[in-house]
Design a protein around this nucleic acid. Structure first.
Lengths: 121, 121
DNA sequence: CAACTGTTCAACCGTATAGTTGACAACATG
DNA sequence: CATGTTGTCAACTATACGGTTGAACAGTTG
């Protein structure tokens, strides 16, 4: 825990915006599909099972905050990951979730007594 | 872009939950304050300027998803970062924001013509 | 026990946003 | 130009969530 200066409110909002854009399962699904490369909106619709307008909306937001790039290709539009760090970032979060799941499983199996939450008597 | 298998809906929701917890300026501010070490709710209230109940609520959520630890210390409660990766994660996002800000600034200064769609031409 | 401090919880309100629907824009083809 | 294809945008509804307020709870002190 070395030196960590305070951060401006504007910066906090910008950073929060980045996190928030990834804080939605549908958008995470689209990002995950883009892990394998550039895809059109139509392809993402088919692969995700989401509605066309919904996918377009999510992609618009991801593009606005800079997580994906947009490129017109004839009649369709191709989206791709804009940041090489995206995959690492998502995998870090996946590992966190897995670790927590394992930790919880270990707790409940080794110490069932402590799982009886304290309630006022 | 190597092999990236699809992810279950439950997993996506869990991962999104992690991102979402950090997708709020007030919570990010609290996390940032905790960068310097363990703090009580009261200390966080004073440092953040947020209301007591509000801080408690945010800390409750951060604790629920595993971003902070909670420890009773006499009459007060001390919170701390639970994950060593937190700082690196936030700094990555900060760098992203800074990079994007610089890229935008460079664009508007070198190519004013394309910015006519917006004010500040 | 009673009073005080520090924290959490529950109910409420206002706003933000996910998803749908329908209209419309951009590009291709006949 | 008319038509089909692909995607975006605007309006709408339902739900989620941030923030406030007031009550309840847990230690500490007298």
């Amino acid at each position: 825990m070395s030196d960590h200066p305070p951060i401006s409110a504007a910066m906090l909002e910008r950073v929060a915006e980045q996190f928030r854009a990834l804080g939605e399962p549908s958008r995470l699904r689209l990002m995950n599909l883009l892990f394998s490369g550039e895809l059109t909106v139509g392809e993402l619709v088919e692969a995700s099972g989401l509605s066309l307008a919904n996918v377009s909306k999510h992609l618009g937001l991801l593009h606005q905050v800079g997580w994906v790039t947009r490129r017109k290709d004839g009649v369709s539009v191709r989206y791709a990951l804009a940041d090489a760090r995206t995959v690492a970032l998502c995998e870090l979060m996946c590992n966190r979730v897995r670790e927590r799941a394992e930790a919880e499983a270990a707790l409940t199996s080794t110490d069932p007594a402590t799982t009886t939450r304290r309630r006022r008597g």
